[in-house]
Nucleic acid binder design. Structure first.
Lengths: 204, 204, 204, 204
DNA sequence: TATGAATGAGAATTCATTCAT
DNA sequence: TATGAATGAATTCTCATTCAT
């Protein structure tokens, strides 16, 4: 009976592929693009080195892909958190909460995006710029609306959004470096939201 | 004249050493730790590769040293800018202005600190943490004083300082990536200062 | 009906096996032994890689086998062309014509034998030597007869045969590299025959 | 006292470079381009693998260079042998003798050119074509002159030259494969010359 | 029979580092 | 001090081959 590829095999392959990608995210997040070797990745996934090249064309391509996918995931998650809220206050709280949640439960995501990819392949630079831009745009939109509604003081919305993105990143990274992030998380979210509301001069 | 001779020698030595360190900052800032090779550095400094190992024990040590020195320079420069001002408003403006000045005139400094060292040797992590901590402390001090004077709203000063540090970094990096940073610099400084004043709820 | 079933199976088997061998000849002829991968072969034959190893023990064995078979085919074809002719003149013309025909209509055969196998496995060296020897023997026989009949000048028949074999190969390869081989073929055949007749000092 | 590069060092470097190239020629000639590894070459030269890449950019470049140089050497040697002779008879004898001499005393040269490079890098194909063309041109010139002088029968000089080149190669390769080439060499040269003279229908 | 996922030995190449001069 | 030739561990990637299904 010949080999059937449509049955369990396909699923298994997808499964293994996913497992390898998750292992790769962990490794890249921990060591960064350059320090992480393909051998590290396959060790983490417990497969042979040839298997890596069966699933992915090369280290760089995989990394870029992972970075894009991870960035997409983060941005979309924040976007959804924001989109479901009516007021700027709620949007900030929800967005920040979502970011912190990801940092707590999928720290590799945040580490990969904020650390793992710095100094990686030149072709990543554009992806990185796109990601940062998406984050800025994410906050720019609700701020713009709030501005038009007169809920916040006149200001360069674009610059404010940039600053907030940087502020959130820094606080989240510090949170991850803290001894007990999950304990501190709730208060950190609240403080970041207050910081942001003050920073945009929200007229509550 | 042994003294003179020694003096000349030391100058020569210092000259080469200095040239290599300056070259190294540029190269590391541009390519990042891993992409930059020792050969890149000695080529830029126009010395032989053996000379590198006469002056420095290895690539990593030099990088760490450079990172520390650069971080020190940045922190001290900001510190001086802040220390010379009496009010929080002036301190923020002067500190931000100093940061932007460095970014404009010594972009390698900022790039080395914010980008070049990410994912470098594990032993850099502590230095990096120290640097971030110093930046936070830099702003924490005046904020604390302002808080005690009742000039700003009650808040977690530490968290606010973290957020401001992240905000300034992000805006400065965006500024460096802009087509004409020097043109935009002045307005950016003003906007960042306003952002910061709002964020701390300064009671002007 | 077991017979029918077996028959179908064998045909199927032969079909795939044949397809792979034909594909292999093409691929080896085009890329040479080392550049050609097993994957190239199975792709060209449109079967899976595992199928290759069901029919053939390994790449080298297949190549050797193909080389032998191809060499056999070439030698036998020339042999038949020669055997059907009565005079040396006719034999040379027919033999050369047959060679050129193969080169034109089955260029892969010639390329495999003259190019594809050079530098391949060490175990091929003997096969290659055998092939060259067969070619030499091919021409040596009629030359010997002609010599005995006094139709050609006294000479070292063996050496002459070697030289002719080399001469024919070179001209045929040049022909294959020409812009329009088929156009030039007829005149080339005639010229090669004349060359050969002069070279053996045929007393027409 | 600083390192002086102009003295012995330069010579040593050149010497080592040459030694490595000679080792490479031997290895490439014996195993062919693909079978020969860089490790084989450095083993033969008794240096570390890094040394290879200090002297040469990569395996392919070195091989191409070696091939070109070797082809040049062979062609020039034959050219000189021919140029120094007045009559076609002498030219053929001298040229063939020179070829056989090289085959006997520098067999690697002949092996590299006739065997080692087949199926190597695609970029070699042009070099190989150039080499074959140079060989053909080598014999075409004296033949053309002889034809104009009426010393040989009318014929397609180009084709004759091709055939002779192929004939000489084949005989020389067979000679190298013989048990005692040096013994057979003298008679082989004479027989090849006679073959050639007959083939061009030389009117002695 | 047939498949294709999985393997791992082996090849090319890079680069930090050493050391004789 | 200064040089740069020399080293070799480590990395990425290929590809013939195996084997569970």
């Amino acid at each position: 009976m010949p080999y059937r590829s449509t049955d369990t095999t396909r699923q298994k392959k997808d499964h293994k592929r996913t497992a390898m990608m998750q292992a790769a995210v962990r490794v890249f997040a921990e060591k960064g693009y350059h320090e992480a070797t393909v051998r590290d990745v396959v060790s983490a996934a417990d497969v042979a080195i040839g298997t890596f090249y069966f699933y992915f064309p090369d280290k760089e391509t995989l990394f870029i892909h992972l970075y894009e996918e991870t960035a997409d995931f983060l941005v979309r998650t924040l976007q959804q958190a924001i989109a479901n809220r009516a007021t700027l206050v709620q949007q900030l709280q929800a967005g920040i909460q979502a970011y912190v949640n990801i940092a707590l439960f999928e720290p590799a995501v945040v580490q990969l995006l904020l650390i793992g990819g710095v100094g990686a392949a030149r072709s990543l630079q554009q992806k990185r710029a796109d990601f940062r831009e998406a984050l800025v745009a994410l906050w720019q939109a609700p701020l713009q609306i709030a501005l038009e509604k007169g809920q916040i003081a006149p200001q360069n919305i674009r610059r404010t959004a940039e600053a907030l993105v940087g502020a959130f990143d820094e606080v989240v990274l510090n949170l991850l470096g803290a001894p007990a992030p999950e304990v501190e998380a709730a208060i950190a979210v609240k403080e970041m939201a207050q910081f942001a509301l003050r920073a945009v001069a929200y007229k509550g």
